[in-house]
Amino acid sequence: MTEGFTRLFSPLGAGTLGLFAAIGRTAVFAFRALIAAVTPPYYPARLMQQLITIGYFSLPVVGLTALFTGAALAQQIYVGGERFNAASTVPAVTVIAIVRELAPVLGGLMVAGRVSSAMAAELGTMRVTEQIDALQTLRTDPFQFLVAPRLLAAVIVLPLLTLVANAIGVMGGYLLAVYRLGFNAASYLDTTRAYLELDDIVSSLVKAAVFGFVLALMGCYHGYHTKGGAAGVGTATTNAVVSAFLLILLANLVITVLVFG
């Protein structure tokens, strides 16, 4: 009887312990990374390289995502709003939805898909080919050389990408509303301006900075702890993207409840 219970619940217990251990390891990793980010030596050239890789090269995917989402959103609000004579709310709802939620969240998810996977694959390959060990024997802290520039760059650049996504997302809604649904262009822009508040933009940027931290942390963490050759790099990449997605959505919920709840 006791043995049966043990057999039944021991995987559950092991899984729970494993989860807490993983949370602990991630927290320690994040702490080490933050310490490394503020402790010399600094690597400005590597930071610049990451700003370009994460920021500049993510612009097309973030911009297109925002454009298509803004346009689709405007169409949905128009169709839904018509049911209770509220089609005129398209500009107001579009701008609020884009700035508060869709631009930071979808932007964060798109960048996570692109960047967390690349970070995990690069650091994972460095781990399995002993390049990280080589760094240490050459008296270079991998956290300062590899992790800190990626983390800092993501935290800096995600809010900037989100600003761009906000503008392009609103523009997507505007284009569809004006050229397909027949809205007056000047009136659309006036309404958009009237309903957009500073708090919306600030919350959008705060979310983006947090998402940037999360996606870089997950990419670096899973890459840094890669084991087992090419298969291990594949697993690390998948885990980085999945965990970044989940944590971004969780962080979004927490920030939304805290700011707007």
Binding site: M126, T129, E130, Q131, D133, A134, L135, T137, R139
Partner: peptide, 13 residues
């Protein structure tokens, strides 16, 4: 600072 190491696979960056 006074130690050098050659890794089996090279481990070049």
């Amino acid at each position: 600072e006074r130690i050098g190491m050659l890794f089996q696979g090279g481990a070049l960056f």
